[in-house]
């Protein structure tokens, strides 16, 4: 351990001996790393978990001005059917007022580049420390920007789900989604 080479015998050629020692040690280290991998990989999402990682949501029952929360990959997803006024308000905000500048247009585009500004789809997890913001249900406080308000540390989001005030660093995350028909959206 501390001084292995001094205790080994002096009979064989030291160069050959050192080479053999180092080569064996290296091979052993490779083996140890290869053994470690399945143990780590074991904790990754399993095949059945991955197979459930997309959901389909029917948009028909959601009236203008209403919002629903659905569970996707164990997290809440906010789907808001925005009013004309809310869309206008979101589009009118100058980029300079946003801590995390992003156009409203970009946040309502699906993976096939289809833009439907009336549907705002976001993961309902505050980007500060992971609480679920209020504002998705009628009667919830919506914060001073008319969007969402996180009760944990007071972050306020606007009608596009962008951070406007408070400790959260980023806008609410928009997941990948695709409108498979007029009334159906596939998330994930």
């Amino acid at each position: 351990m501390a001084s292995s080479s001094t205790t080994a015998n002096g009979h064989s050629d030291p160069t050959r001996r050192d080479f053999l020692m180092v080569a064996t040690g290296a091979l052993g280290a490779v083996g140890a790393a290869a053994v470690a991998w399945p143990f780590i990989n074991n904790l990754n999402p399993a095949a059945d978990t991955l197979a459930l990682s997309t959901i389909e949501v029917n948009l028909q029952p959601i009236a203008v001005g209403q919002a629903v929360t659905v569970k996707w990959r164990g997290k809440p997803v906010f789907i808001r059917h925005r009013t004309e006024a809310e869309i206008k308000e979101a589009e009118a905000v100058p980029m300079s007022q946003l801590p995390d500048p992003e156009t409203d247009n970009k946040r309502v585009t699906d993976t096939a580049k289809k833009v439907r500004p009336e549907w705002l789809i976001m993961i309902g997890v505050c980007t500060h420390l992971g609480c679920v913001p209020l504002g998705n249900k009628a009667g919830d406080p919506k914060g001073e920007f008319g969007g969402w308000f996180c009760p944990c540390h007071g972050s306020s989001y606007d009608t596009s789900g962008r951070i406007r005030k408070g400790p959260a660093p980023k806008n609410l995350v928009v997941p990948d989604y695709l409108f498979t028909s007029d009334a159906l959206v596939r998330i994930g």
């Binding site: 053999l20 020692m21 080569a23 064996t24 091979l27 052993g28 083996g31």
Partner: peptide, 8 residues
């Protein structure tokens, strides 16, 4: 690895 260990 066993072969090398044996040599060592």
């Amino acid at each position: 690895l066993a072969g090398m260990m044996y040599a060592v």
